[in-house]
Write a protein that binds this DNA or RNA. Sequence first.
DNA 1: CTGCATTGTTTTGTCGACAATCCTATGTAC
DNA 2: GTACATAGGATTGTCGACAAAACAATGCAG
Lengths: 244, 244
Amino acid sequence: MAREDGTGDVGGGADAQDDARGGGADDAIYAKIHAAIAAQDLPPGTRLREDEMRQIFGVSRARIRKVFSRLAYAGLVTIEPNKGASVFQPTPKEAREIFAARRGIEGTIVRLLAGRLGKAELASLNRHIALEVAAEARRDWQEMVRLSGEFHLLLAEIAGNGILLRFLRELITREALVILVYEKPGQPSCSHHEHQMILDALLTDDDAQAVLLMEEHLGNVEDRLDLDRDTRKSVDLGRLFAGA
Amino acid sequence: MAREDGTGDVGGGADAQDDARGGGADDAIYAKIHAAIAAQDLPPGTRLREDEMRQIFGVSRARIRKVFSRLAYAGLVTIEPNKGASVFQPTPKEAREIFAARRGIEGTIVRLLAGRLGKAELASLNRHIALEVAAEARRDWQEMVRLSGEFHLLLAEIAGNGILLRFLRELITREALVILVYEKPGQPSCSHHEHQMILDALLTDDDAQAVLLMEEHLGNVEDRLDLDRDTRKSVDLGRLFAGA
DNA sequence: CTGCATTGTTTTGTCGACAATCCTATGTAC
DNA sequence: GTACATAGGATTGTCGACAAAACAATGCAG
């Protein structure tokens, strides 16, 4: 999957110029960049130049610009006026807000779901956990991260609220960026075991327990980070050389 | 405030061509359309033609297009490919999702806030409620609706989570559209009395009570609607003329 | 050598024109 | 009279060219 000089590589396949024309060309480009960010192929802070992207995807600059705009609204890229777009690079404060917001929304979803899981939904969730177990057996960390996020999205989907689903999707992708910045990457962030416990709790009517487990589960991820240290390139030189 | 033929009037002042050029021209146009929708000057389903808007605001069509795009992402307008933009017209299902999502998010905010209100914040909230009381005394319904929404945004702001604040802002504006479609407009939707009770509960550590009050408060609005009847213009002609 | 002004290049922002699509009105066949 | 096909107008979608701003490199004064 290595290609060129590695500077502007976006996503997996799709060299260039393949499905430029057509109805959902924007969506395809959006999905590719989104996937590249979620898969951590585009590290936070990476500059996204319009002309570069234009060449890579073989489309007009206006289209790239439109896609950037959408990505910016989803919080995945930051657009600074007259400075262009770059992959979102969360500050510690933003990181904490993302975690808190996610806990709140997933708590809501769990409350909606507790004691109301149908047979088909339960089967679907069990199947998903099986996939997670298999991925762990294969030691496929990247796949585990993907599946882990998907489990939560699956819960949201079953809850049947498209708005909460959209919010959560945004938060999960942004949280992936947070993890990438503030923790060593590659670590599986969710254990399927905890997923199983949440699912068990959901089968009872005890929503308080389910919420508790979910919040703990999400808290485990946050606890593993070092949010006090701003690892971005701006360093406090004054403090650094204070004792010299 | 009556003007022209009333077809394309957007917002209050700003005839045209005033602050077209300049840094935040987009933001100004966005804010005006947003305000017009929130103030119910642009009823749901209203077609928003690009060229019309271009003339009204005296800017290029591309700029209008960009603003529409942002409004669409915020869920305030719907863009159908090759068909243009129109003010979001919620279905009953979407309406219910908006209410449920809002209950969840405001519940989260209340939980964040319970027992943690500082002196300055408390004063700010009390001041706001006083404004609501004054507006009711004046029988200024429109102002009451605006203040009512603002109270909830103020809570979110105090909670200090910018992401939840953004989500809630979107939901509140969309809920205004829901109310406009499914209820006789002009009715004040929130009573300052309930706001006061929530505030009282927040001063204690009893977050469960505060959450309960908030959910009841929000539920009162939903209960006043008739979400089973789809009041949009598509009528079932077959059923309508069944007995003729 | 350092700091600052200046010029040239790169990158983003904006606009107008053209193409494609959709909606409406008219005409025609049955 | 109704249904369908067709032509015209209106509206949105897309692109390329130009303008403005930011960035980098160079030259110059102190």
